[in-house]
Design a protein around this nucleic acid. Sequence first.
DNA 1: AGACTTTTAAATGTCAGACAAATAATTTTT
DNA 2: AAAAATTATTTGTCTGACATTTAAAAGTCT
Lengths: 243, 243
Amino acid sequence: MKIDPQKPADLSAQIAQAIRSAIISGELIVDERLPSEAELSDQFQVSRPTVREALKRLAAQSLIRTQRGASGGAFVNRISFEDAYAQQVTTSTLLLSMNAVSFDTACEARFALERACAPLSAQRRTADQLATMRAEIFRQAQPGLTDEAFCASDVAFHRALVDGAGNPVLSYQLAGAVEAMQPLMNMITFTARSREEIITLHNQIADALEAQDADKVDTTLVELENYTRKLACDVAQQRRKPA
Amino acid sequence: MKIDPQKPADLSAQIAQAIRSAIISGELIVDERLPSEAELSDQFQVSRPTVREALKRLAAQSLIRTQRGASGGAFVNRISFEDAYAQQVTTSTLLLSMNAVSFDTACEARFALERACAPLSAQRRTADQLATMRAEIFRQAQPGLTDEAFCASDVAFHRALVDGAGNPVLSYQLAGAVEAMQPLMNMITFTARSREEIITLHNQIADALEAQDADKVDTTLVELENYTRKLACDVAQQRRKPA
DNA sequence: AGACTTTTAAATGTCAGACAAATAATTTTT
DNA sequence: AAAAATTATTTGTCTGACATTTAAAAGTCT
C-alpha cells in the first residue's frame, strides 16, 4: 500500500484502491487507525483534498469511519450485517430497475432463494419468528390497507421466514434480494380476491413451519410463486388492453 | 432533492444522500447529467470540494460516473451486473472475515443457495456451461496444483453451475456468495485423497446436470456439503492437537 | 491529594481561489 | 470543404486558511 504511478486514472481512486486492498488483505485490521489526512497526503505525495476524496469513497462502502477531534481520524470499520444489508438493498434495487429485469426473472430468483432456506427454517424457526409471521398475516387481512402497505407487510413476512433459518449469512443475502423486489411488486394491484388467496397461502406456510413440515412449506412456496407470476401476468395484459 | 439543514452530519454525506435518493426514486434517470460541480455548490450553498466529496461517495457505489472536458460532468450510471457483483464480493468477503462467521455457517449458506438454483440449472444448463465444468474438473485433477489454485477452480466450477440456471439475478447473488467464501475455503489443506473425493462428486454433479436429473444434483450437493464440512472440521481439530 | 475547570493541541470539516488537463464546439485557415 | 487552431467548459488537483470537535494536559480550588 504505497505506490501511485501518475499514469491512468484519478489519484483519489488509486489511493482508495490501495487502502481498500490493504484492508481486504488484512494488512490493516479492524479498528486500526489510518494515518491522518496530512500524513497520508505526505505519504502519497498528493494534496489533502485528494486524500479526502479517497477516504470518502471508502466511507461510502462502509470500509472506514471517521471521527473528529484529538485522537480522531479514520478507522477501519467492522462491516456489520446491517451495513452490508443496506448496501445490498440499494445496489440490488437499482440493478433491477435500471436493467429492465423482467418480473418473471426477478420473481423466479426470489422464490428460488426463499425455497433454499425453507428447510432450515422449518427446522429452526423460533416461536418469536412464527409470531411475527402471524402478526403480518393479520395485518394483511386488514381492509383499507394500501397496496404499498400490503407489499411492505409481505416483505416483513418473508423476512421472518428467511430469518427463521437462523443463519445470518443467509438472512443478509436473501432479505436483500426479497426487499429489492418490492418496487416491482408494488406495480401489482391487489384485489380483495387476490389478497385473500395470498393470505391463505401465507397461513399455510406459517402452519407448515409450525409443524416443521419442510415439504409442505416448499410446495406452498411454489404455489405462491405461480400465483404471484399469474397476477403480474394479468396486470401486464390489462395494461396492454385497457378496453 | 434540495435541502440541507446544517444540523447533524457531514454536508458531503447529506448531499450524497440527497442525490442518491433522487436516483433511487427515479427523479434522476440513467445517463442523465447532473449539474456541474460549480452549479451544485451554488445550489446546495457549499463549496466545490464539499460537492466533490459527495460525488466521490456516489462514484464509489457506481451510482454515477464522471467525464472531463466540455460537455463532461457527472452522469447517472446504469449499474451493470458486473459492477453489482464486484461490490457484493467485496462487501461479503469483508463481512465474513470481520465478523468471525464460522465456517459451518458460511458453508451452510453457500450450499443452501447453490441447491436453490440446481433444479433450474438441471433444466437449462447449456452445453457451453457443461464444458466449462468439465474443464475445471480436469484442471482440479492436475498434480502439483496449489491449494489456492484448486480452490479457484472450485469457485469457477460452482460459478458455472450457478450460471446454468440462466437467471442473471440468481447468478449475481449466488456467485458473489460463493466467491466470498473462497478465503475461508483457502484455509483448508486439500490432501490428494480429499481432492480425489471432491473431483468424484464434481463429476457426479456434471453427469447429473447433463442428464438433467435435478434430484441427483441435489443429493450430490448435499454429499459435497457434508464432505466439505468434515474436511474443515478435521483441519480445526488438527490445529487444536498439533501432536 | 483529589475533583473540577480551563487551556491546549490535534484532527477532521469546510471554504476560497487558483491552475492544469481534457474535451467538445467553434472559428479560422488552407 | 477539409484541416487546423482557438475557445469555452468541466473535472482533477493544489495551496492555504479557518471552523469545529474532542481528548488530553495543565491549572485551580477544596
